[in-house]
Amino acid sequence: MRKIGLIGGMSWVSTRTYYEHINKLVQARTTKLASAPMLIENLDFTDLVRLSTPEEWARAGDVLEASAKRLEQAGATAILIGANSMHKVYDRIAAGVGVPVLHIADAVGRKMQAAGVKTAALIGSRNVMVESFYRKRLVEHGITLLPPVMDNVEEIDRIIYEELMQGRATRSAERTFRTILTNMGQAGAQGVVLGCTELDMVIDVDANVLPIYDGTRIHAEAAVEWILGG
Rank of each mutant, 00 (worst) to 15 (best):
D44V: 00
V117D: 13
L43R: 03
S35P: 01
E140A: 15
A68Y: 00
H103S: 13
D47Q: 10
V101I: 04
A223Y: 06
A120F: 10
G96L: 11
R178Y: 14
A60N: 03
I22V: 13
A207S: 13
K136P: 02
F45V: 02
A66T: 09
S11M: 10
R175I: 12
L194N: 07
V192K: 04
L210M: 06
V89A: 05
L210H: 06
M38N: 00
T15R: 12
L138D: 04
G188N: 09
E162N: 11
I123Y: 06
R50M: 15
L210V: 02
C196A: 10
Q190W: 01
I4R: 03
T53P: 01
V193F: 12
K136H: 14
Q73I: 01
T176Y: 15
A207Q: 13
I4C: 14
A60M: 03
N23D: 01
P148T: 05
A120W: 08
L102I: 15
Y161L: 09
E41N: 11
Q27H: 07
R175Q: 14
G82H: 04
A74C: 10
P147M: 07
I4D: 12
I22L: 09
F45R: 03
I93L: 10
H21T: 00
R92P: 03
E131T: 08
S67L: 00
M165V: 14
G167L: 03
L71K: 04
A58T: 13
L164R: 06
V117F: 14
R135I: 03
R126Y: 02
T144E: 15
M184R: 07
V202C: 02
R175N: 14
L138Q: 08
L102Q: 13
S132Y: 05
A220L: 11
A95F: 07
E72Y: 00
G195S: 09
S125P: 00
D214M: 04
G116T: 01
R92C: 03
K88A: 08
W57Q: 03
I22Q: 03
I7L: 08
S67E: 08
A74G: 11
P211C: 02
G109H: 11
G116H: 10
V13T: 04
V130M: 13
A74R: 04
P211M: 09
V128D: 11
L51V: 01
T31W: 14
Y19C: 09
E56V: 03
V101E: 11
L102A: 11
E198F: 02
G5Q: 02
F45E: 09
V26H: 13
V153F: 04
A222L: 09
T182V: 10
L181F: 13
A78C: 08
L122S: 05
F177G: 07
I203T: 06
P54M: 05
E162H: 15
A107F: 09
K88H: 13
